[in-house]
Each structure stands twice: as C-alpha cells, then as structure tokens.
Nucleic acid binder design. Structure first.
Lengths: 185, 185
DNA sequence: ACAGCCATGTAACTCGTTACATGATTAC
DNA sequence: GTAATCATGTAACGAGTTACATGGCTGT
C-alpha cells in the first residue's frame, strides 16, 4: 500500500470501479467523456503505460481471452486495487485545485494589447464555454435514471451538476466582464 | 517571432510588463502572489531557467550593475519581448482551461468510500477555499486606487474580481453538495 | 477499394518538480 | 551569534506529450 502513485493513476483506476472491464481504448474514451472536466485526460499512450504499471502492481488485471498478442484484452480492477484506492481516498488529503486558465492569464495582461483583442478573446471563450457545457450536459443526461441516492451514478451526477454550475457561473461572469470593458473605449 | 514557447514563459514575460524590473526571486514572489490563481506558479528553479532562456532569445535583458557573479541582477522586458508578447496574444488562440481538481475527482469516485469520508473531504475543502479567497482578497485590495479604466492595475483587478466570484460560487456549490449528501445519511 | 475507426505500443522529447549546494544580508 | 530571508543555480528525475509504426475490422 501507498506506492505513491501520481493522481492520474488513481483516476484511471477509479474509472474501473463502475462495474465493468475495459480495453485501453475504451478506458481512454471514458476518460475523455467524463474525467476531462475535472482532471486531465491522459494521452492514449499514457493510458497504456499506466495500465501496464497498474497491472505490474497487481491493482488491475487483464481478463478474458489472452491469445498471445493480447489484442482486445480487457482490464478490470482487482480486490487489491479496490483496497488501495479506498486507502488512498480516505487517508491522503485531497489537495487544492490547480487551474491553468489561458483566458484569465491573457485578461491579466490585457494592457499589452488593444481592448478589441481582449474583448474578442472573451467572446470566443463564450462560444467554447457553450460547447463544453453542451458536452457535459450530454453526460449528465446519460446518467439520468441511476442518479438517486444509493444508485450507480449518484456521485458522477453530483460532480456533473457541479460542473454545469461552474460553466453557468463562468458564462455569467465573462458576460459581466465584457460589459465592464464596454463601458469605456 | 513565434518561437513556440510554452505558455508559462509568456506568463513570466507578462509579469515583467508592469513597469518595473525584477530579480528572479522577486519574479517568483509576484508569480506566487497573483499568477498562481489562474496559472501554475513555476518552481524557483524554473524561474531562473526561464529567465535564462528568455534572455538568450532577447525577450528579456538583465539591467543595472553586473559585478561578475550577477548577484542581485534585475531583469526587464525588451522591446522585442514586448512585441513578441503582443504578437502571441493577438494571433494565437487562447485555448480552453485545464483543471486538475482533486476534490471533484474524489467526489466522482464517492461510491468507493463511505459517505462520511466524502463529506469530511468537502468540509475540508470549504476551509481551504476560504483561505484562498482571503489571499486573493488581499491581492484585490492592494490594487485599489489604480483599478479604474486606463489605470495600471485595471486588468489585474478585473481578473481578481473574476477569481473572487469563482471562489464564492464554488463555496455555494460545495455547501449545496453537502446538503444533498446529508439528505440521505 | 478505401475510409474510418478500433487497438496497441515505442521513442524521443519537454515541462516542471524536488533535492541539493552555496552564500550574502538583515533582524533580533 | 544565529535564524530568517534574499538570492542563484545544478542535477536527477518523473509526468505527460507528440510523432511514429503497425495492423485488424467494419461499413459503403
């Protein structure tokens, strides 16, 4: 226990706790679909190397047909993996969020360019924001029906609601910033 | 132009556009004070290596006394640097924010541990959130007096207001999540 | 027949971190 | 005098990326 794995490893391990076994490819798709809103979705190549490491550590095991090459092999979390994940979650502090927000960074440096550039950037951001919100909205909808207390997607739906609230608030704030920037000129 | 520098380099370069010249140490402190809310604040050692690279590229220049060893040398942005930063900001798309939120990740995996653990984590997060907000509040206050349109700290104060709004909203949402988790037991 | 997706991996590389080393100046 | 802060760097390392290589399967 306590192999000091990076958080991304635990994240991938955690994606295998929803009752099914996945190929590396499918795990990547699941990460792209849900994890990417709260964590970085690792590159395809990293998914495979993480799976190799987790297998090595016995936290994950390949299941099903194993015809030599290992094409189409599925991976599932082991009892050891489940225990390790539980220990990590309940004994190590979560730590604070790290944000890399290029729009905020550029707004901070707004005095370097002309105001129209900054306003254009904020408007572009509104579009991007709407696209992301729409994608998360799809995810949220797909969880309906199993999102009640005690049901399978209870926690994923709580996080999705949090994410949707975040997007809504950011949209509101960007619009206010645009209004404030319009005031002068 | 277009040396394809990482965003962090532009961020540090940007911190040198506020009318003063800084030592590496001071630059790190400025990054810790303001940049860290919207971007990662690089490690001390990286600040020095970035300054070396930016100097090499002529985007930054050491000014003042240069007594051999270079102790206490200050760096300032050059005309070339200013131009490069402006070009970067007005011609390359900002890109979407990347969030690494350990609390959201753990909430997503809430079914792995018992509810009390998750609730405890959220309550701890409220405390951390308040500390961060207080720190940003200090920053915001220090900008007062030069935060009007056309003034020196106009843009930094806009970003700070955005950050404060973000913290307020997150606090509200975590409280709602706690309420929702309480509803069951 | 060809495009597009499913599927797995290696190699080279950059970013960024921690640990370590060193020493000057300032405050108490 | 000694602790804290100012100040600068090197070295080793790990996380994570992009580019590249390879090939099967499916639909049209």
């Amino acid at each position: 226990m306590g192999q000091e794995l990076p958080i991304t490893s635990y994240a991938l391990l955690g994606l295998l706790t929803f009752g099914d076994e996945l190929t590396g490819y499918e795990l990547k798709r699941r990460a792209d679909a849900t994890l990417r809103f709260y964590w970085v979705s690792p590159a395809m190549s990293q998914v495979y190397s993480e799976l190799a490491r987790l297998t090595e550590l016995g936290l994950v095991a390949r299941v099903g047909e194993d015809p030599g090459a290992g094409r189409g092999a599925r991976y599932g979390i082991t009892e050891t993996g489940r225990k390790e994940l539980r220990t990590w979650m309940s004994t190590t502090p979560a730590g604070f969020a790290v944000l890399k927000h290029p729009v905020a960074l550029r707004l901070l440096l707004g005095h370097v360019v002309d105001p129209a550039t900054t306003k254009g950037m904020l408007r572009d951001h509104l579009v991007a924001l709407d696209e992301e919100r729409a994608a998360l909205d799809e995810v949220r909808k797909s969880l309906e029906g199993a999102d009640g207390p005690g049901e399978a997607f209870r926690y994923p739906s709580l996080v999705a609601d949090w994410g949707l609230d975040y997007f809504a608030n950011e949209r509101r704030m960007i619009e206010e910033l645009l209004r404030r920037l319009e005031e002068q000129t």
